[in-house]
Simulated assay, not measured.
Amino acid sequence: MSGPRKGARQAAAAPRHAVVVGAGGLMGRVLCERMRALGAEVVGATRDTPPLVRPDGAPAPALRGAGIVYHLATSVTPSLAETRPELVAADHEAFVALLDALALLEDPPLVVLTSTGLTVSESADGRPCTESAPARPRSAYARAKLALERELRARSPRVPGMVLRMTNVYGPGHRLRRGYGVVAHWLDAVVQGRPLDLYGDPDTTRDYLYVDDAVAALAAIGPEAAELPFDVINIGSGEATSLGRLLGVIRKVTDRELTVRLCPARGFDQPANLLDVERARRFLGWQARTPLAVGLERTWRALVGMEVAR
């Protein structure tokens, strides 16, 4: 691991040319808005925009002059990764093609890859995992993310890179995807008057991170970090929350009677996952600031407002 990242804390105020791959997702939309508010020139890439890599493997004009590329895009969820290996392969191939195209540039930008804390498996004895914890991915999803991390590391320093291992990001506008995003699925069930499906043990713990906090971590990284060694940084709230406690907070925030349907644990579920976030505090000057109850209330109000608008 590298030493402290000097200057990263001030980087968020500096205008720059940024490319956001996955601009249509939960974090991508908020990140584009935040970067533009900071004065940055932002290119948002989605499945509906022109490809960033030409058929001959050359970088598209949108990549030229970029100081930083945020790679947030994914086609798979933990559930889909188990059943659709072709989607995992397609994601991998697209990321490799992007890195290879960037390597052709005279001055490649910093690539910031969002990964998952599940790459380091469970938190031993309830203690949070540090970035140096052995990688022991127990699911196809975690293995796929770790493979992307390794592709980026292998190209460093030619293509400078940084990995942010995120915990469970939630917030307004989180689209429903099978087997992914318990907060989004539970709040949607409340709105629709359906039972909430609780998979596995209610004592299963996770770390839930509000989207604005996740994006603040991304925006805290400046292109000057390209001069530093490849690094991995955990991004999370630092607080373990059981599914049972999450259910209680949702009950309080929504102020509705909830019906809970207990379901068997899924193969990709883990009993506990908590990340140590001290490195993010020291190197990025970042920490999560949104309490769970506050983030859930904002998410709930936005969802109810959308339903009323319809």
Rank of each mutant, 00 (worst) to 15 (best):
E106S: 14
E297H: 13
P157F: 03
G161T: 07
G7K: 08
A11I: 14
Q287H: 15
G24L: 05
V182S: 13
W286N: 14
V260I: 15
T254I: 08
A144V: 01
A97V: 14
R289W: 10
L38M: 11
V76G: 00
P50G: 02
L87K: 03
V163K: 05
D107P: 06
R281A: 12
A101F: 08
D201T: 07
L275I: 00
S242P: 03
L228H: 15
Y199M: 03
L228C: 13
R256C: 12
K252F: 11
L118F: 06
A226W: 08
L63D: 03
S115G: 00
T83E: 03
V159H: 04
E33A: 15
R29N: 04
A154Y: 04
D107S: 15
R281L: 12
A147G: 00
V159P: 02
R138A: 14
L63H: 09
A60P: 10
L113T: 08
A81Y: 05
T167H: 09
D188H: 15
V42N: 06
C263L: 13
R194P: 05
V191H: 03
R29V: 11
D231T: 07
L146G: 01
K6P: 04
M162N: 01
P223C: 04
V69Y: 10
L176C: 02
D213V: 10
T241K: 01
D91L: 02
D188Q: 15
P78V: 00
T299S: 15
A124E: 13
P59V: 10
D212G: 12
R175E: 11
L80F: 08
A189N: 10
L243T: 02
V304Y: 05
Q10F: 14
Y180R: 13
L146F: 01
